[in-house]
Design a binder for these strands. Structure first.
Lengths: 242, 242
DNA sequence: GAGTGGTCTAGACCACTGC
DNA sequence: CAGTGGTCTAGACCACTCG
């Protein structure tokens, strides 16, 4: 027999949607605790187990963080544990190195066809372009070019970037209320152009990793397009497959 | 107060271990169904919900596959849906291309220091080395060199590799009873050497993706060390971050 | 000790598959 | 229709954090 209710959605998913709404509307902000499971159960008139299943899924998606005895918290890029969530670069020699972001430029532009397509905006709409370096132990390992929709990040300047201590996504979150949830990276090998070669201190034409990233916020909305060139002389991109 | 029982392990994890044992010992083989939740609950003298939680975790780890109305099955690399689980290469133009593995050589050797370290065997122990190409739409995109512990894959020959229809991991699973569960890939950009350049039909010195993979079977045991050179002229390595 | 998340149970019912 | 996984409930108790 055919499926009885083609749009069947279990209760816990509806609860999940309601909690998602609370995140999107800012009812509960990154870093804050959401109400306890029993409170949510009462508010939504379901059993605690059903709330639990909704929260379980969201915790698995890195949207919420559970801490036994304390509560359930909205995930935040300010949390130092989240720092390497999107940066898969590690030193070949092993160990952990201090990293540092060094913004170079920040200017306004109009979206070309490609940026418009990726960011799902119209051609000609304002965008912001950022160029920056990423350094490990003082050595430049990544040169990034970052394209942001101007509407969302209105007011972003080089000074803001330079002054901010912490990761870029932490800045986006606290200053612009934009929380990156998910990203896709497309990786290729390319030859270093003259400018990048100089910045990365490698020969012109040396092989580099080209990492193109599109980041999404709530509702699968793309809000960042980034292209990075990684020098893999002393670092490598680590990926866990499972 | 300090934690009362430092080795506390919830019941569902113990059940999970028991089910894991069933997988490792081959009580239930890849592709087969494991007993129903109620059967397992009775066998282990726990409630169905506890079995459920154990199975949930294993399904999340791609060890088991649940199919409503049918049962719970041991994950298998023979399942066509598992084919792209470890291969993150896609055509830039989008779409799906037929891929084909072409083994070139297969010989015996003794483990050098590096292979021994990675595969956690002793230096000088027998290993098997395989060289092969991966082609998409008839074009060679990857050249792989694969190092396998000789003890585990005893009897592997070039003819076996050539005759087998299906993925390499599918062969390992059905013929040698070795199931790959997890892998780590370390990615760098390198310049094409003469031999690889010829095979991949690119210029010598052209930038290539170097993908080093270590694959693990049950018990975190490494059973494959692989180094691939990927031509990213028309393909790219796709990674989802979340 | 009060409050939180984490575990475990027992039972009812729903959705899907295949005979 | 019987058997499977999937959902939902209500309640008990455990482990952890903090004041």
């Amino acid at each position: 027999m055919a499926q009885d209710s083609p749009t069947f959605s279990p209760l816990y998913r509806q609860i999940k949607s309601l909690i998602m709404q609370g995140l999107e509307t800012g009812e509960w902000r990154p870093g804050e605790a959401i109400p306890s499971e029993s409170e949510l159960a009462e508010r939504f008139s379901v059993s605690q187990g059903t709330v639990r299943k909704a929260v379980d899924e969201m915790a698995a998606e890195n949207l919420l963080i559970r801490r036994q005895g304390k509560g359930t918290f909205v995930a935040s890029h300010n949390d130092p544990r989240a720092f390497f969530r999107f940066l898969r670069l590690i030193p070949i020699s092993g160990g952990v190195e201090p990293s540092h972001s060094m913004p170079l430029e920040c200017w306004r532009a109009k979206a070309g066809p490609e940026a418009a397509r990726v960011l799902q905006i119209n051609i000609g709409e304002p965008i912001i372009v950022v160029r920056r370096l990423l350094q490990f132990s003082g050595k430049t390992v990544v040169v990034d070019e970052i394209y942001l929709p101007g509407e969302v990040f209105a007011g972003l300047t080089l000074d803001i970037l330079k002054d901010y201590q912490g990761s870029l996504y932490s800045l986006f979150e606290t200053r612009f209320g934009v929380r990156m949830i998910r990203a896709e990276e497309r990786i290729r090998a390319v030859a270093a152009d003259r400018v990048s070669a100089e910045l990365l201190n490698v020969e012109e034409g040396a092989p580099l990793l080209s990492v193109e990233r599109v980041s999404y916020t709530y509702g699968e909305k793309p809000v960042e397009w980034r292209r990075g060139l990684y020098s893999t002389a002393e670092h490598c991109y680590l990926n866990e497959l499972s």
